[in-house]
Write a protein that binds this DNA or RNA. Sequence first.
DNA 1: ACCCATGTTCGACAATCGTCGAACAAGCTC
DNA 2: GAGCTTGTTCGACGATTGTCGAACATGGGT
Lengths: 105, 105
Amino acid sequence: MELHEPELREVPVTAVLAALADDVRLQIVRALAEGGEYACGTFEFGVSKATRSHHLKVLREAGLTRTRVAGTSRYVRLRRDELEHLYPGLLDAVLSRSTTPAEHS
Amino acid sequence: MELHEPELREVPVTAVLAALADDVRLQIVRALAEGGEYACGTFEFGVSKATRSHHLKVLREAGLTRTRVAGTSRYVRLRRDELEHLYPGLLDAVLSRSTTPAEHS
DNA sequence: ACCCATGTTCGACAATCGTCGAACAAGCTC
DNA sequence: GAGCTTGTTCGACGATTGTCGAACATGGGT
């Protein structure tokens, strides 16, 4: 199985931003940001597994996640260091605010 | 003329990111980041004025820009302070890298 | 008043996107 | 091997998006 995982630096800025500009994917990133690896099935955010698979693909191909294959499972983790190196502050800035708006400050 | 300019804090994160996830709009933001006001017509990035108007509307409704009407012209500026306050580091992170990828580091 | 300049709005169009169910692939367990 | 689990891929669909030309609105300038 070919896992397409480009270097983050080779991904256009707009593709990185587009990958983050989706509620489901942001929830995934938010979960991944806790650290560690998660099996794909971990992410139950009210979408079918086809859709989940699609979103994980988008994140992976945007250079945001790394995927390790183990048996029938795949373990996903955030490429935090590279992200922080190329886009310092971006992840924190994005995750600092809740997905739904309208709270104080 | 009603100018719809929401508070940045009331705009969903995904809408802010989506607004930035476009080449033309990123070029506009990049230009605006130099500081000061620019008439809409300033932004000649190979699109028609209808398209330009559309992009400026997206940026404005994402809470990223402020528009001042003066005669037949409109002057646009970046809401840098609010952006920095709510998403510290985001603008710099996004603008630090060129729109097209693939340069060293 | 007429024209010109600056922008917006209105369809229309092709392309992309998010979503799903169904089918498929691959590995584990009994 | 049969069956289950995990996850991907394949159409298909409706919705959204970026783009344009054309029409419109508005405010100068002469």
